[in-house]
Structures are given as C-alpha cells and as structure tokens.
Simulated scan of single mutants.
Amino acid sequence: MKSFKKKFLTGAIVAAMLAAFILTGCATMRSASQAVRPERDYSEGYEAGSMLKEVPADEMAYEKSAATTVAAPAGDTSGELYTDAGSSDAATSQTVSAKLIKNASIQVEVQKGSFEKALFAIASLAEQNNGYVSNSQSYSDSEGKMTSGTITIRVDKNNFDAVLNKIKEMGTVQNVTISVSDVTQEYVDNESRLKNLEAQRQSLLKLMDKSVTVKDSIEVQRELSNVEGQIEIIKGRQNYLDNLIAYSTIDVYISEPKAITDSTEGGFTGAVKRGARGALTALRVITMVLIAISPLLVIAGIILIIIWQSLRAKNRRRARMKAEQANQEIQKK
C-alpha cells in the first residue's frame, strides 16, 4: 500500500512538471510570434466566397505605419515640424510649417461726422489687401445720423499686421484684442489619417476587382462607402482650416464721440423747461392710453346708446298707455 502511494505521488509530481514545462514553452512561442509579426498582404489573401472573413476591413490599411511627428533638429528656430512619411509612401522626411489662425478685435473712436467715411475706408482697405467684408452693421442716433457700427473683414494672413496698424491710425483706439490659435497638431493628424484612409480605399478597390459573388461585392462596397465618407469629412475639415489660416478675421467697432449735454438747468427758466417737458410727457402718455383703449371706448359708447334708446322707448310707451287710460276714464264719466 505504501509503495503504491509513493508511486502515485511520484507520477503526480512528474505530470505536474511536464504540464508546467509545456505551458511555459507555448507562452514563449506565442510571445515570439507576436513580437515578429510579418506584414500581411491582403491583395493575395483573398479567396472567392471568403474574402471579408480572411481580410478584416479594419486591418487593411492601419497595420502600415502612419506619419509621426518628431522634434526639430537642434538649433532650428523656424517653428516648423518635421514628420516622417509613412513606410508605404517614402523614406524621406518632410517639413510642415506652423498652422496659425490669427483673429483680432478693435474698437476705434473717430472724429464727429466721419463714421461713414471710416467705414468705407476699412472696406476699401480689406479689398486692397486681398480680402473682403464678411459682415457690416450701422446704427443711427436720435437725429437719424449714422454714428456707430461694426464691420468684420477678412484679409490675407501676410497682411494682418499691416491692416491692423492702418485701422489704428483712423482714430483713437479704445480696445484691441488679438488671438492666435495653433492648429498644427490637428492639421498633421488629419493628414496622417487621410493617408491611411486613402491606402485602405485602394486596398478595398483591389478587393472589389477580385470579388466574384454578389455578397462579397456588397460587403466590400459597404466598407468602401464608409471609408470614402470619412475621407470626405477629413478633407472638408482641412479645407475649413486652410481658409481660416489663409485669411485672418478682424472685427472693428467704430463710433463717433457722444454729445455731452448739460443736465443742470437751474433758475426760473430751467423750472419752466422742466415743467413744459413734464406736461408734454404727461400729455403724450394720456394720448397713448386713449389711443390704446379707443376700441373699448367705441364699443362702450355703442352699448350706452342702445340702452338709452331702449329706456327712452319704454318711457314713451308708458306715457302713451297712461294717456290712453286717462281718456278712457273721461269717456266713461
């Protein structure tokens, strides 16, 4: 019995050691195969009837290395970013200039009576610097004269500082705000995504040519439409950023000096003026109230007239009846 137990324990220990050795070997082989994973060629891995099963759509182009941003060389102060082109495109590096969006807001007070002249001058200034007016609004004072307003212009980014300085010379600057947004990282990321999506699109087009069944064609077409939709979205965003970068926006608020009135009227003359203004104000309020309730007054008048006529007719009938009764009594006697 004891020998059987010893044999059983010895066999169990040997079996455990073999199992641990086998598991360790499998884990080592798996990690080695993952560390050295060859690039897959999807155009050759296609077979009729099993195309999308062997070639997942989300792996067609993303297994290729995308463009990555690296630091600029030492001593370079140009403000440019250096990127490595993807391994599928080229091995040389390329530079991407900083993508900056410049905007400004300025408030200028011009001389009295020169608001419209300044407004037209700013619009002309935008056209002279490869720009245009995107928005304009004008406001009038109590006398009906245009004395203030806003104008938004967009000018070439290279002329931004020159245009802003010329606007400052048109009058007294009361407020200036300048903002600069750096969208270089977003721009580079979009370019990298666009390259990957274009590569994925080309792979899908190759698979489309090799498809032999309707089911395979439909699946590839659906994935191709999705990829092309993403490409159009990124291109639209890039075009929008290009426009904001190429043309700087300047918001200008122009105004004439406000007239200063003397509100300290004293003495008998001042009291008469204040009384007259008060009487005119009260008369204006009463007139407005009467105009507002005039429809109600008309309706009330019509109702009163009807009631008065009905009462009058009723009194006449009573008087007639009394007169008739009196005549009848006289005749009886």
Rank of each mutant, 00 (worst) to 15 (best):
K2F: 14
K2V: 14
K2Q: 15
F8M: 15
L9F: 08
L18R: 00
A20R: 02
A27G: 06
R30N: 06
A32M: 07
S33F: 03
V36P: 01
R40W: 00
S43I: 09
S43H: 01
E44P: 03
A48K: 02
A48C: 04
L52K: 04
K53T: 13
A61C: 07
S65Q: 15
A67R: 14
T68M: 15
A71F: 12
A71R: 13
G75E: 05
G75S: 06
T77Y: 10
D84Q: 14
D84I: 15
A85V: 10
G86T: 06
D89T: 09
A91W: 06
S93D: 09
T95C: 02
A98H: 03
L100T: 05
L100Q: 08
K102S: 13
A104P: 00
A104W: 01
S105I: 12
V108F: 00
V108R: 01
K112Y: 11
G113F: 04
S114D: 11
E127D: 14
Y132D: 12
N135D: 15
Q137Y: 12
S140E: 06
D141Q: 05
E143G: 14
G144K: 02
M146L: 13
T147K: 03
S148T: 02
T150R: 08
T152K: 04
R154F: 03
D156P: 05
N158Q: 10
G171F: 00
T172I: 06
Q174S: 09
N175D: 11
V176L: 07
V176C: 04
T177Y: 07
I178S: 08
V180M: 12
V183M: 08
Y187G: 04
V188H: 04
L194H: 05
L197T: 02
E198W: 05
Q200T: 13
R201M: 09
L205C: 10
K206H: 13
K210Q: 11
S211M: 07
V212W: 10
V212L: 15
T213P: 05
T213A: 07
D216C: 04
I218M: 15
E219H: 04
V220G: 03
Q221I: 12
I231R: 01
I231W: 00
E232H: 06
Q238I: 06
Y240P: 00
D242K: 07
Y253M: 10
I254H: 02
I260G: 09
I260N: 11
D262V: 11
T264F: 10
T264A: 15
G266N: 11
T269Q: 10
V272I: 14
K273D: 01
K273A: 01
R277N: 07
R277L: 08
G278R: 02
G278I: 07
A282H: 03
V289G: 01
A292D: 00
I293D: 00
S294C: 01
S294K: 02
L296V: 06
I302P: 04
I302V: 12
I303R: 12
I305P: 03
I305A: 13
W308T: 14
L311M: 14
R312F: 11
R318D: 10
A319G: 04
M321F: 04
A323N: 09
E324M: 07
A326W: 03
Q328L: 09
E329H: 11
I330G: 07
Q331E: 08
K332W: 00
K333V: 07
